[in-house]
Amino acid sequence: MWVEKYRPQKISELINQKEIVGSINSMLKNQSELPHLLFSGSAGVGKTSAALCVSREILGKHWRDYTLELNASDERGINMVRERVKKFSRFAGLDTEIPFKIIILDEADEMTADAQTALRRITEDTAKICRFILIANNLSKIIKPIQSRCVVFKFTKISDKEILSQLKSIGKKEKIKADEKGLSAICDYTDGDLRHAINILQAAASSGNVTESVVKSVVGLTKTNDVQDVLKLALDGKISDARDKMIELIKVYGMSESDFLKYINQAVFNSKANNLEGMLETIAKYDYRILVGANPEIQLSALLAELTKFGK
């Protein structure tokens, strides 16, 4: 995978995070006093890469042996903290070259409150032999006692200019043909997520030249204008026709439910309807329902049904 092949190996290689790079480098000058770290920010901006770079910088050639990397969203409960983290943190046998072990908890914001409370105590008890690096998309879901025990770094979204530069660099190394419009389409779609951008580039490159039409086909954007038609049908009260077209976009053309919501949200803005506030609030409500696990097809059908009220 290109996303792993071109993952930064050193802190200095992180993209668009100059202040964070500078702060971490300053901390690494006195490794024995390194605090626990908490990296927050949206997806694909370099949080996990930064954690792995810190581990390599401190542990050198031993980094794989003395680093425990867990995805907290897979194991959200207190048992994960008690069994895996506690066991690793207490396991004896530190090499004389190693100042401490490192535990990386990815997606820590998905941990239950009980698990986070248990983790708080472990971070204190094992401070002599362990350092924790917590990674979270949503900082507000991390309990305050853990936040206060860590140095918090807030990663910013990567600019389109930086993403474009990285895609061009990778394209050159992989010897693929990519035009400016194709790469710009990737930037527009990924919205600051470099990891997603590299994955799309690789998928588009496997189809031949990376052009705008190929990129749109790969990410299911070839029918985005049809979302405006779905909105118009719903506002005209033609709920069955609107639903059929919505199902076709998702099932036949591969548009994701989240993309459908994103584009119908944009279509509402473009429509300049009088009751804009109510329509946007309705879309937000169904976006939340899908996010918490409700059936997407049922929820999107209900969304279209509710939008018909705004057309009357």
Rank of each mutant, 00 (worst) to 15 (best):
A185G: 07
A92D: 13
I78D: 12
G293V: 09
E83S: 11
L94M: 14
S42N: 11
I133H: 02
L14D: 01
Y263V: 04
L94C: 12
S213N: 13
M279Q: 12
S240Y: 13
D191Q: 15
S240D: 15
I198T: 07
E212C: 02
K285I: 05
D229N: 03
E180N: 12
I24L: 15
V152L: 14
Q228W: 02
S12H: 04
V85C: 02
L28K: 07
L291V: 09
M1S: 15
G254Q: 04
A205I: 10
V292Q: 07
R243I: 14
Q116R: 01
I98W: 00
L249H: 02
S240F: 09
K245S: 13
Q299T: 09
A205V: 11
D259M: 14
N199D: 08
G60C: 07
D74P: 11
S23Y: 08
L300H: 05
F91A: 13
I170Y: 01
A115W: 01
E297W: 03
N138C: 09
Y189S: 10
S73W: 04
E110W: 02
V215Y: 03
K251R: 13
E57C: 04
A204P: 01
L134E: 07
G41V: 00
L38R: 05
K161D: 12
K168T: 06
C130D: 10
S256W: 05
Q266W: 06
Q31Y: 07
N71F: 03
T123W: 00
N138S: 14
I15C: 13
L134F: 14
P8H: 08
E4T: 06
R90G: 10
E277A: 10
V45P: 07
I186K: 00
F132Q: 05
L119D: 07
S49R: 02
V152W: 04
V268H: 12
R90N: 11
I98P: 02
L94N: 10
C53I: 08
I103V: 15
I163G: 06
L139F: 09
G46I: 08
Y66D: 11
R121P: 09
V227T: 08
L233E: 14
A178Q: 03
K154N: 14
L52W: 05
V268G: 09
S206Y: 04
L68V: 10
I102N: 01
D114I: 00
K309D: 10
M1D: 12
I20M: 07
C53D: 14
